[in-house]
């Protein structure tokens, strides 16, 4: 990696997101010094347009930061803060400081917004909301009387009904809302499908990061672990397993680039869907191979491989799994028909 932004991100995460920090976060210790360092570096605002408090980074640069954060298993809501900021900025709302997240994230969860005398009445339940317990505010995409509406929800206006976690120990909480909001609600420029796609795009980028980490750990381990008198990486069976893994890592990186392009322009559901589905499949294949190459040590809590693989196994299901997104892609292709298939794939 040669560009200065990526280099400084590598250094920052190496310094502040070590194993002890990742472990402590799983026991409920929010890594405040890491988070503060991210804010100082401007990374949390990287996806924001400059008029909304952004730092002038491109979408590609923001996604590169996210990929590096994921490679370090950084236990912070960076993706969610970027996503919430993006949603608020798209809707023309101010973006507050601090850790942010979005809701709802599950297909069946709906938050409803009705007009009240003194503002907006927001009600409903949203499950598996990432990092809700740590968020300074939640950007919600609610069903309003005039269609999808974006509103900002502060911690004193929702109840943390259940503290849940994903397989990697990242908070995924249930919130219930029955509150009257002040004026900060605005018509959303899009509906729940686009928010889901944006979520899928950032998870795709994170998968690419965690997968590259699983690959480099596996390659390093194969070079030092000696069995039958030589490093196991000298055995052809192991070499070919790791070559397959490298192929999946490359596919995941390509998917991350596709997702990044889509996020930067128009959020084309076909491309986001293809990216999330391809990355999810890569995650499944590569996580299995990484553990196979590591043997028993990779299965222990002490060794760090699971920081990457438990994230892969979580993120592949969040914001839509492979079946859901491949279904979206397939429907688009079948609707285009045999003569529309290739033009659809090659459209810029």
């Amino acid at each position: 990696m040669s560009d200065p932004l990526a280099d400084s991100a590598e250094r920052l995460f190496a310094a502040y997101a070590g194993k002890a920090v990742v472990r402590a976060a799983e026991h409920g210790v929010f890594p405040q010094s890491l988070w503060d360092a991210l804010i100082r570096a401007g990374f949390t605002a990287a996806l924001l347009p400059e008029h909304a408090g952004g730092v002038g980074a491109t979408v590609a640069e923001a996604m590169a930061l996210l990929r590096i954060a994921a490679a370090h298993a950084a236990p912070i809501p960076l993706a969610e803060t970027m996503l919430a900021g993006w949603l608020l900025a798209e809707a023309g709302l101010p973006v507050p400081e601090g850790a942010l997240t979005v809701a709802p994230v599950r297909l069946r969860d709906v938050l409803t917004l009705r007009r009240a005398e003194d503002g907006w009445h927001l009600t409903g339940t949203a499950s598996r909301v990432p990092w809700a317990r740590d968020a300074a505010a939640i950007a919600v995409l609610a069903e309003g009387p005039d269609g999808p509406t974006v509103a900002l929800l502060h911690p004193d206006s929702f109840t943390l009904a259940r503290r849940d976690r994903n397989l990697a120990g990242e908070p995924r909480d249930t919130i219930t809302v029955d509150t009257v909001l002040a004026a900060d609600a605005a018509a959303a420029p899009f509906g729940p499908a686009q928010l889901r796609a944006a979520g899928a795009a950032v998870r795709t980028v994170q998968i690419a990061g965690a997968l590259s980490r699983a690959l480099s750990l596996s390659v390093q381990y194969a070079q030092i672990r000696v069995q039958f008198g030589r490093p196991i990486g000298k055995f052809q069976a192991i070499q070919h397993s790791l070559a397959v893994m490298a192929g999946q890592a490359a596919a995941a990186l390509a998917a991350a680039d596709m997702a990044t392009d889509a996020l930067a322009g128009g959020l084309d559901l076909l491309r986001v869907g293809a990216a999330k589905a391809r990355a999810g499949e890569a995650a499944s294949i590569a996580a299995g191979l990484a553990h196979q190459a590591h043997g028993a040590i990779g299965f222990t809590q002490e060794y760090e491989l699971h920081f990457a693989t438990r994230r892969l196994w979580s993120w592949r299901d969040e914001f839509g799994n492979e079946a859901e997104w491949n279904g979206v892609v397939g429907r688009a292709v079948l609707a285009a028909g045999p003569d529309g298939l290739w033009p659809l794939l090659t459209a810029a």
Binding site: A274, A275, V329, L341
Partner: peptide, 14 residues
């Protein structure tokens, strides 16, 4: 069928 065709297309795009 949509899921299976979609998977082939997702791979092709990547």
């Amino acid at each position: 069928a949509a899921v299976a065709v979609g998977r082939l297309v997702s791979h092709t795009l990547a």
